[in-house]
Design a protein around this nucleic acid. Structure first.
Lengths: 125, 125
DNA sequence: TCCTCATCTGCGCGGATCTTCAGATAACGT
DNA sequence: ACGTTATCTGAAGATCCGCGCAGATGAGGA
């Protein structure tokens, strides 16, 4: 990574430098930012997005249902679900030979809702 | 893309098929899912995440302040801000030779907050 | 126990994206 | 008007990641 501190003239004698120092202290470190970014990145894929919204609507679906709902091969769905599950975005439940998936918690649901609002999707329900 | 519909035995005579059809109808189409995913993907990067949380804390920062706050070269920050701005995640305001950036709206702030809660960061404020 | 079905896993390719460097542009102070 | 400073832009390289295929695994039913 390139150098940053040594030759910055902007904040040198700037009245903001104090404030910047505070901000800098409160900015998530690499570890935390990595975790946060990983969660967002997980949602940042068309296929996963579709699947998650499908779960948001349906509450609970098995792999083959998801496959039918979002028009994606079952193997791909399975793979995607593994990813989502590993990150704690979804939970699963086994019933016979089927495995049912659902959104893990209210936070995830809230993220999906807020995002849909932001992008201007009205009348979601 | 592989075939999906024709040879699925799972939902064939399944009582769920009705429900699945409903879900399928409500799942965001490619266009909408693309928009949603794009927003999440935008937040799904360590550098951008740091910058956004910095803005969440500070309210408003210029490029050089951000550079100092997150320890990233100014040129890189500038480029990142262009991306964020193009997607409407941040707004900017020019004041002399400085350009100040801020989070665009409450939705973005909410996304950041909810995500931080989800990842188990207590005492956010 | 054997066979079938739903789901899972490993591998390799193609595509998208992040990063950085170097130069261009804009605005200020003198 | 000139030099300096802050910010922006464009392009190339390297990296990462998702995608689909084919075979393996696990659970039921007869």
């Amino acid at each position: 990574m390139g150098r940053v501190l040594p030759l910055d003239g902007c904040i040198g004698g700037d009245p903001q430098s104090q404030r910047v120092a505070l901000v800098r202290a409160s900015v998530p470190d690499d570890a935390e930012a990595g975790t946060l970014a990983a969660l967002f990145r997980l949602l940042g894929d068309v296929r996963r997005t579709k699947i998650l919204y499908a779960l948001l609507e349906a509450g609970e679906l098995c792999v083959c249902d998801i496959s039918a709902a979002v028009q994606v091969p079952e193997a791909s769905v399975s793979q995607t679900m593994r990813l989502l599950r590993a990150s704690g975005v979804v939970d699963n439940r086994r019933e016979g030979r089927r495995v049912y998936y659902r959104l893990a918690d209210a936070h995830v649901r809230m993220l999906l809702d807020v995002c849909r609002e932001h992008t201007g999707h009205e009348g979601s329900r």
